[in-house]
Design a binder for these strands. Structure first.
Lengths: 208, 208
DNA sequence: GTGTTTCGAAACTTAAGCGTATCGAATACG
DNA sequence: CGTATTCGATACGCTTAAGTTTCGAAACAC
């Protein structure tokens, strides 16, 4: 921190407390180190504040001055993974399903994003606050988007009438997730048409 | 351990070493406590030998006399969950798919069995030996069985020609797993025809 | 300049949990 | 009976990490 990279003047409203300002660079380094380590170790208990401080090149004091414990830091760190929500889509339901599937595949291939789902699925009992936040920020918007898309397909006749929406949603998301889990991440990055193939498979079904 | 419940005479071949025999009841209590705690805490690092000993009503000595470390104990404990392999099935591919789906649903609703999949999916890097054992003992047989069933369906014409078997497998397993994850365990035990509904949904596909 | 606050680094206290060792009591065999 | 081994309980040394405190240096406002 040799140069002047401290937090900006903070506007006219807050009269800027006296003393040395907090380093914005240190804050970013802490968040980045946290996300890197979470992406590697998958599991909150394996994540140590000391490892974060070492990786970020920062003293533990600098961390504890900003966050009072590990969970608070994680909440803020995961919030920066703003997974920009699957973007709005276009004309045909199939095309939109492919767009969503592609987003899921891309996220599932990124270690940082993948760990979010791992935490949401496995740490519910030990970190309910964190999991609830993930659920509201990431899972729920996607669930709602897919539900709306499936319902739209039913009304437009592009999808089967009487479709069981919860099952269909588990169908789409579960297939993508499980495929990545079993076939590995390489498979995703390799074949660029994987999303299309999966969606077409789901649309056609198993029967002839 | 007030009564005589020690290990039986052990046959004529081994001449029975002198001294007090090891308690079979203690061994069972240790395994049970291990599975209970794993099912609750999901995550091997949260599992402590001391907690197992306390839950089993056993001294740590009794554990370390049988297993040299946590992982060895887990390997043996998980091996007792012999999830008796999906039983052989019958005439139509649909019926057999329903049988498998029902087994997966039942397993996914039991905390002890559910944790096996959690470990297999999340602890691969930290406990490769354990995960490899789970993979060979549980995952691989099921994968092979489903693959065979899907292939059979293609040859008999009950399933679509040119079916992508890996995607179809992720389709079946992923749908079941994700449905349980999102809708909760209660949903499984409640509706007894869930397996049929999921399988029929997969067969029919999303399209009209 | 003085005063205030943050910086990174290090030492510190506290708490878990591992794996070992020791203890008296219990349970087998001969 | 004597011997051998296991039993549960407890204490021990060791490691890891949490969270706190102290330190001199640095960065700001005045």
């Amino acid at each position: 921190m040799t140069t002047t990279d401290e937090i900006q003047a903070a506007g006219a409203r807050t009269p800027r407390p006296a003393g040395r300002p907090r380093s914005a660079r240190a804050e970013k380094a802490i968040i980045d180190a946290t996300l890197d380590l979470v992406g590697e170790s998958v599991g909150i208990s394996e994540l140590s504040i000391e490892a974060i401080a070492a990786r970020a090149g920062v003293g533990k004091t600098t961390i504890y001055r900003r966050w009072s414990n590990k969970e608070d830091l994680l909440v803020d760190a995961l919030a920066t993974l703003k997974t920009p929500l699957p973007p709005v889509a276009g004309v045909s339901v199939r095309e939109d399903l492919v767009v969503y599937a592609r987003v899921f595949l891309r996220d599932a291939c990124d270690a940082r994003n993948r760990c979010v789902m791992n935490i949401a699925m496995n740490e519910a009992e030990r970190h309910p606050r964190l999991v609830e936040r993930i659920r509201q920020a990431t899972i729920e918007p996607r669930r709602a988007a897919i539900t709306a898309l499936l319902r739209r397909g039913v009304t437009t006749g592009e999808l089967r009438a009487g479709l069981d929406v919860p099952i269909a949603m588990a169908n789409l998301v579960g297939t993508v997730m499980w495929y990545i889990r079993t076939e590995g991440v390489d498979e995703c990055t390799a074949s660029s048409d994987l999303a299309e193939r999966i969606v077409d498979h789901l649309l056609a079904g198993l029967a002839p």
